[in-house]
Design a protein around this nucleic acid. Sequence first.
DNA 1: AAGTCATACAACCGCCGGAAT
DNA 2: TATTCCGGCGGTTGTATGACT
Length: 196
Amino acid sequence: MAKSVEKTVALRKGAWSPEEDRKLTAYIKRYGIWNWAEMAKPAGLQRSGKSCRLRWVNYLRPGIKHGNFSKEEEQTIIDLHEKIGNRWSAIASELTGRTDNEIKNHWHAHLRKRFKYDLNLLPEVEPCQLSKAETDLNRSFRIDLPAHNVPRPSILESLGSISTDNFPSSSSNPQFEIEEKPNIKGSFGSLDNFKE
DNA sequence: AAGTCATACAACCGCCGGAAT
DNA sequence: TATTCCGGCGGTTGTATGACT
């Protein structure tokens, strides 16, 4: 079903454009989340359901915090990681507005090398034995460079305030029409967050 | 000024579990 | 009960950007 759709349509990959972000956000604002695999097409996106879900969950969803982690947040991550390991989603649930992906990245970029450095736990191994991530970690560790933690300009700035006012309505553009929402199950996502 | 290196982070991939049929 | 589908998770990779030489 959904898989056949994804097979027959050439799907875009790579970085999301502001236009794609607008389309996905506007679609979810209008119709909610009902089936990621099926939503992409009527939303006007040539993306896989997984890609749409990931973009929404990690970036577009209301309430997502971007930017540097506070000392408290870092300490929470360290504490929880010590207790439960790489269960990033569980850790993320304890940090309002942070996603598992962001925490995972932050851990690998900042915290893990600091943690291991403190404990002298990093083994001496040949780089050829390491994955890329491990190689990066080892390299960073050994040269002991301070992270130049300059945040990139957020793509959200280019989006401005998202509005569906200039977005094609379902009545004027059949591309966005949905006769019904088949096989709806589970949560409708974070629609409550749109309520003002 | 140009080339290379190091870093951060967005996004993809593959697997797994739960729900539906 | 078996199969299929979907969403979620964690690991990994690709790439943009800034620092360094």
